[in-house]
Amino acid sequence: MSDETYPSYDLLDVLCPMHAVLNASGHVVHAGPTLQKVFAGKPLIGERFLEIAELRRPHVAETMAGLRGCHGARLHLRLRDGVRTGMKGVLIALPQGAASLGPPGGAIINLSFGISVVDAVRDFGLNAGDFPATDLTIEMLYLIEAKSAAMEASRKLNLRLQGARIAAEEQAYTDTLTGLKNRRAMDHVLERLMQTEQDFALMHLDLDYFKQVNDTLGHAAGDQVLQNVARRILAQTRADDLVARTGGDEFVLILAGVTARARLSEIATRLILCLEEPVMYNGQECRVSGSIGATLSCAYETPDLARMMEDSDLALYAAKARGRACHVLYDPALRADPPLHGTD
């Protein structure tokens, strides 16, 4: 195999950095810098070309004579090892006589990646400097890079917008003072429970003696009491229960899956006990308690939200009428002798 170097090689390296020069036996005697980069760490020089690349079209004998017969034709090839990237090529058969651009009887094959260029850039770590200055591949790479940058910017913008939307939705469903859910969130959860026909308990809690805290210590003390009450209620409920502040000192609890009266009574008793612990404000004790009215969706043949809210409210005022700091589970008998509505 001749190691002779031809002056044309330097010219080919610049104009066709993906070329290979074959000698008369079909072995690679020279390769452009980009092709060498593609074969980095793999044998190339001295290898038989048809053993490192598969000629897929045209279908000819896998010999040097077969290759030379493809003079000027468009070749479809694929690397045989590693990343089996598809390539396009054109072959120029060199004269058999005196040397010209390369070994007599040899050939020059100029290769390109065609539509596989994006994958090739990624797989072989190529960049714009690996292609001829006039190659449209460079323009395409710039467009791909610009598109990728634009898509990344769009992705980040969408993430920010999504975050802002989630934050806005969360804010729309949250009571700003206590961090609990608000009436809008309560309505949303109740509607979902009704649609899915899931049983739940509805508990209406109203603070006792809260007005006295506001009147004697001011609204800042009242706000601190409300925030403390919110934390205590959350501590006594499950993560999937909904606790909403629906008015000044009014709270609604939605307890999904609760159907037993004894279980509901136990939860209400625990809540009332924890609310009776005093709240300290500027060294002074703020004492409140809680009255609770509740109803169970399973107690209705066909649950109706408006009726359930009305019944839990009726049970709440019955608890107020019985001396506060107690709970009442709705009973139809309450409608026969409805309690008077108290104010605190």
Rank of each mutant, 00 (worst) to 15 (best):
M1S: 13
M1L: 13
E4D: 15
T5N: 09
Y6I: 03
D13Q: 12
L15S: 11
M18I: 08
M18V: 10
A20Y: 03
V21I: 13
T34A: 09
L35F: 10
V38P: 00
A40V: 11
G46P: 01
R48S: 09
A53K: 08
R56F: 08
R56D: 15
R56V: 15
P58H: 05
P58W: 04
V60F: 03
A61W: 02
T63H: 00
M64N: 09
C70F: 02
H71R: 07
A73Y: 11
A73F: 06
R74T: 12
R74D: 13
R78T: 12
G86I: 10
A99D: 08
A99F: 00
S100K: 11
P104I: 06
I109K: 02
V118R: 14
F124C: 06
F124H: 02
G125C: 01
L126V: 11
A128K: 11
A133P: 07
T134R: 14
D135Q: 00
M140C: 13
Y142I: 13
I144F: 12
R155H: 13
R165Y: 02
A172R: 08
T176C: 11
M186F: 00
V189W: 07
L190Y: 00
E191V: 07
L193K: 00
T196V: 14
M203Q: 10
F210N: 07
T216D: 07
T216A: 10
G222K: 01
Q224S: 11
L226K: 05
N228I: 09
V229R: 10
A230M: 11
R231D: 13
R232E: 06
A235G: 15
A239C: 12
L242P: 03
L242H: 01
V243G: 00
V243M: 00
R245K: 04
G247I: 02
G247N: 01
G248Q: 06
L253V: 11
I254D: 03
V258F: 01
R263W: 04
R270M: 08
L271H: 05
C274P: 05
E276P: 12
E277H: 14
N282C: 14
G283D: 12
C286W: 04
V288L: 00
S289G: 15
I292P: 08
T295R: 01
C298P: 01
A299H: 02
M308D: 00
M309W: 02
A315K: 03
L316V: 08
L316I: 06
Y317N: 11
K320N: 05
G323M: 06
A325V: 11
H327S: 15
D331M: 02
D331C: 09
A333M: 11
R335K: 12
D337V: 12
P338F: 01
L340Q: 15
D344Y: 05
